[in-house]
């Protein structure tokens, strides 16, 4: 564990990312205390640039809603969707990949053809269509993102399992009579976990981007303020009011950047050999 942290901390960017990420999570957690009023309420005059009105230091939008409040509350949706949809996608992907990679043969072919099929369909379009058909809500957004995100995990896990399955220590486990379940859980999975963790961290970032895109297109959950929605709503007035789309976009940028940096740090810490090769 200590070794893990020293390796992680050696990557300056990762530490910066972790600090930012903790900040964003805190913002989401304490949004209701920082901005007790609903972010949908009009609290000031519309079209106020940043700093023009006291209490609205990031300005107001076309209807006089506070941008800063929107960003704080929007952090909740981003974090929630990012984490939950990734968890679901990783769950599906690990199971599909593990089954395909361990048992091989026809099962493998079937599962991988199915995965490849899903990867062929343009993910953004499929996600949008799914949300539109299922009706926009936080649940349908999470489901849609999970459905389009699991294939890379399945491929990754399958690849790991395929190579590990023929590694001699796994064959040795079969020869001494361990059961399939035990072999998967104690021999293969622990050795294939680190790339999955790294991928999952990056998937959170992708999920946040995808959620924002869905909301940007007007398919967000109407009860929850979202960064993508704020940009979408301000898109047509970009000429008059740059701040309305700039700040929420910057919030997405900095959050996703932070997660990616943390992901790279995890990679350095979990796969020290690979990371070093990559840099040479």
């Amino acid at each position: 564990m200590i070794e893990f942290w020293t390796r992680f901390a050696r990557n300056k960017g990762a530490v910066f990312g972790l600090v930012v990420l903790v900040g964003v999570i805190a913002l989401a957690a304490f949004a209701h205390m920082l901005f007790p009023q609903s972010p949908w309420r009009m609290t000031g005059a519309p079209f106020q640039p940043p700093g023009a009105q006291p209490g609205h230091w990031l300005g107001t939008d076309t209807l006089g809603r506070d941008i800063a409040a929107g960003i704080a509350h929007g952090a909740r949706v981003s974090i929630l969707v990012g984490l939950v949809s990734t968890a679901v996608a990783v769950g599906i992907g690990v199971i599909a990949g593990a089954v395909a990679g361990y048992f091989g043969g026809l099962i493998d072919t079937a599962v991988m053809r199915f995965t490849e099929f899903f990867q062929t369909i343009p993910s953004v379009v499929l996600a949008i269509v799914l949300v539109a058909i299922l009706q926009p809500s936080i649940e349908s957004i999470i489901i849609a993102i999970a459905i389009v995100s699991w294939p890379p995990v399945a491929r990754l896990v399958r690849g790991e399992f395929l190579t590990l399955r023929t590694r001699e220590f796994v064959e040795a486990a079969r020869v001494i009579g361990q059961s399939d379940t035990r072999i998967i859980l104690t021999q293969i999975l622990p050795n294939s976990l680190s790339p999955v963790i790294v991928t999952a961290s990056l998937m959170v970032a992708t999920a946040i981007l995808l959620e924002s895109a869905i909301a940007f297109l007007g398919l967000g959950d109407r009860n929850m303020m979202s960064w993508g929605y704020m940009i979408g709503a301000a898109r047509t007035v970009i000429r008059e009011a740059w701040w309305m789309s700039f700040f929420p976009g910057f919030a997405i940028f900095i959050t996703v950047l932070a997660i990616n940096l943390v992901g790279e740090g995890l990679n350095d810490a979990l796969n020290p050999r690979l990371a070093r090769q990559g840099r040479q």
């Binding site: 001699e168 040795a172 001494i176 009579g177 361990q178 104690t186 021999q187 622990p190 050795n191």
Partner: peptide
């Protein structure tokens, strides 16, 4: 029982040696 060729691939890198050896009897 079997002894394998590659000493670098035939032991699970994440388990302690005694546990690796005890796995067989445990499974039995």
């Amino acid at each position: 029982q079997m002894v394998f060729q590659d000493p670098y691939a035939s032991l699970n890198p994440r388990r302690k040696v005694a546990k690796i050896i005890a796995e067989g009897p445990r499974a039995q």
